[in-house]
Structure formats: structure tokens, C-alpha cells
């Protein structure tokens, strides 16, 4: 979570609100923030940390591990209409790449800004070439994009 908090400024600039969820109580969230995270990130965790003690949210989102009693790593990018545009679920021992999350945010925001007229090809980076979706592109992707 500290990795996300560390890049929170960038999420803020992109207009992205972050919500963190684990099965820990609000009290534990508070102490973790005060005792540890605030020493990794200036000012502590800037976004809400939700307490999902019974795993109700994790179950609905398909990330609750019944045996371990925890919500495993899952991140969901939700657009302004409430639509999940991207989701990634990992088992506990491997962390996420915040870099990749930010890239996806920028890509989905770009697509949204063009009203879906442009698509971001594999590995797209901000400023990179996009694909202009339409009949003229059919069978011609090779002309404008190479892996």
C-alpha cells in the first residue's frame, strides 16, 4: 500500500481516487498508518482504508480467500460511470506494479477522451501512437504498429 501512497500525487493529478481494502479493522489501519506507513510516506496514507472484517466486499469482488480469511491482492480500475475497466488479482507473495497501474489509467483515460475512437495498442505509453479504430484499419494494423 505504501507503494501506491508514494505515487498518490500522480493518481491525484490524474483525477483518480484510491480506496484500500483489507480485512483489518479501522483500529489496526490506524495503528499501521501511524506506526509504520507514515514513516515510509510523508503524512501517512492519504486515502481511505476500508475495514472488510467479514470479507463481504472481498467475496463480491472475487478476491476473498475463505481458508486464509483474507482479501488477496486485487485492484480494480473503475471509470466515472462505475464500470470496471481493468482488474488484476494476485496471490499474496507478489506485489503489484504501480507503474503499470498508472500506465493503464492513462491509456483508459486517453481512450475515454477520444470517445473510443482511438485504441491503445500493447505496451502503449502516453504520447505513443494509438490505433484509429475504423474500417480503414482492418488488415492494416501492420502498417501502423509493430510489436
Amino acid at each position: 500500500m505504501s507503494a501506491v501512497a508514494d505515487r498518490y500525487g500522480e493518481f491525484k493529478e490524474l483525477g483518480v481516487e484510491v480506496i484500500a481494502v483489507s480485512v483489518d479493522s479501522m483500529f489496526v489501519h490506524k495503528v499501521w498508518d501511524e506506526e509504520e506507513l507514515s514513516k515510509m510516506v510523508d503524512g501517512g496514507i492519504p486515502f481511505p482504508m476500508v475495514a472488510d472484517g467479514a470479507g463481504n466486499l472481498g467475496r463480491v469482488y472475487g478476491v476473498y480467500d475463505e481458508n486464509a480469511g483474507v482479501d488477496i491482492r486485487g485492484r480494480f480500475l473503475i471509470d466515472p460511470d462505475g464500470v470496471i475497466q481493468a482488474m488484476e488479482v494476485l496471490t499474496p507473495p507478489v506485489g503489484r506494479s504501480v507503474e503499470e497501474t498508472i500506465r493503464q489509467v492513462k491509456a483508459f483515460q486517453h481512450v475515454r477522451a477520444t470517445g473510443g475512437a482511438e485504441a491503445c495498442p500493447s505496451g502503449w505509453q502516453p504520447g505513443g501512437a494509438t490505433l484509429k479504430v475504423g474500417p480503414d484499419l482492418v488488415g492494416k494494423v501492420w502498417k501502423v504498429w509493430k510489436p
Binding site: 500500500m1 484510491v18 480506496i19 489496526v28 491482492r73 485492484r75 480500475l77
Partner: peptide, 17 residues
């Protein structure tokens, strides 16, 4: 609603990753 949201589940406070 009206904003982009990053909803992040994680296994637990005080874990190491």
C-alpha cells in the same frame, strides 16, 4: 461516481510486500 477510482484489496496490515 463521476470520478476514476482505484479499488485496491490487499492481504493485511503489517504484511511485508
Amino acid at each position: 461516481l463521476g470520478k476514476w477510482v482505484l479499488l485496491c484489496f490487499y492481504p493485511g496490515d503489517f504484511t511485508f510486500v
